[in-house]
Amino acid sequence: MNDIVQDLAGTVDAVCARHADPGEGWNPRLWDELERVGVTLLPVPEERGGAGADLATTAEVLRVLGRHAAAVPLAETALLAGWLLAEAGADVPSGPLTAALAGPDVALRQNAGGGWTLTGTLPRVPWARHAEGVAVLVDGRTAFVPRGGYEVGEGANLAGEPRDTVHLRDAAPAQVLASSATAQEFRERAALGRAALMAGAMETATDLAVRYAGERVQFGRPLARFQAVQQHLAEMAGETLLATVAAQAAAAEGTGFAIAAAKAAASEAAGTVCRLAHQVHGAIGFTDEHGLRHATTRLWAWRDECGNEAEWGEALGARAVDAGTGGLWPLITAGGDL
């Protein structure tokens, strides 16, 4: 991490420390501050309204947000909706956005007058009720439907973050643009965002466990002096570091192989970190007011979102088989696609 990225991450960390409230389902004050800092469209090209940063910088900011359990849709806005619109040649509007990959029941039709209608249902769209609009990748096009152009059935993940059903009833998109983005690229960028957020949440869970073990006295000495607890803390630290390095490598490489490895590693590590964090706390930390549950419930939810460890592990295995005996080692060491 260079000095510029480190300073940016430090700025975002300070903003989150002042404004983050993980107990809220949506934090507009934090979003406004992040917009003021200029990170909400971080990887979007400057000519389209963004900052023109790379994926590695964006991943570091997401890791900070994951550390603070920040209730804002930066991954959906910056990595997905902003990318879809900019890639299709459109300027990206300000405000929180979200994005979705159209399923087989979503139809985009052009009428006789040249206008477009979008019909169907988009399940579990993150932050849809708070977004200024949703960018939908459908049939080789990006369709942007602004707020008010769709109905929302409210839902949530385990952490209480909005995961809404978007009902499109002959919605009239504000823009329909030809797109070269693919469904696989969409899934990979979504997975990269989750991997980076998970790395930050694991840091918080580990830090809380270390602090509690140092403060809690049992049988006349701190928990941190018991060998079994020390082993738990060491395992948590190792899994957290593995997830962090994997996410950083994936963001730097930007390739499908590296992203698949990062999401598989992060999802696998999340189970271990959550289990041990609550064990160290003596099985407490589940109540709303306890900081640990804001990290662990997000980890349990994000573990399955955008593909769990089994799905991405299967994708890694398929790539390894395709590479063959002669291509496997170069594939692993280069971290890229053949």
Rank of each mutant, 00 (worst) to 15 (best):
N2H: 05
V5K: 05
D7G: 03
D7H: 14
V15T: 14
V15W: 00
H19A: 09
N27I: 00
E33P: 01
E35A: 10
V44T: 11
E47D: 13
G49D: 10
G49L: 06
A56Q: 12
T57M: 02
R63W: 03
V64G: 03
L65Q: 06
A70D: 10
L74R: 04
A75V: 03
E76N: 14
G82C: 10
L84Q: 14
L85E: 10
L85D: 06
A88T: 05
D91N: 05
L97H: 06
L97K: 09
A99N: 07
A102G: 13
D105L: 10
Q110I: 01
G113E: 15
W116F: 14
G120R: 13
T121N: 06
L122A: 13
H130L: 05
H130A: 15
G133N: 08
G133M: 08
V134G: 12
V134F: 07
L137M: 04
L137P: 05
L137Y: 07
D139W: 11
F144C: 02
G148I: 01
G149R: 13
G153A: 11
G153P: 00
E154S: 15
P162K: 07
D164T: 06
D170W: 01
A171L: 08
A172P: 00
P173Y: 02
P173F: 02
Q175W: 07
V176Y: 06
S180P: 01
S180D: 15
A183Q: 12
A191E: 08
L192D: 14
E203T: 15
T206M: 06
R211S: 15
G214E: 13
L223T: 11
A228L: 12
T240G: 05
L241M: 13
V245W: 02
A249R: 08
A251N: 07
E253N: 08
F257L: 10
F257C: 00
A264C: 08
A266W: 04
S267N: 02
G271W: 02
A277C: 04
V280L: 04
T287M: 08
G291N: 12
L292T: 01
T297L: 14
C306Y: 10
C306W: 06
E309M: 03
W312M: 01
G313R: 04
L316N: 01
G317D: 04
A318S: 09
G326I: 09
W329V: 15
P330D: 08
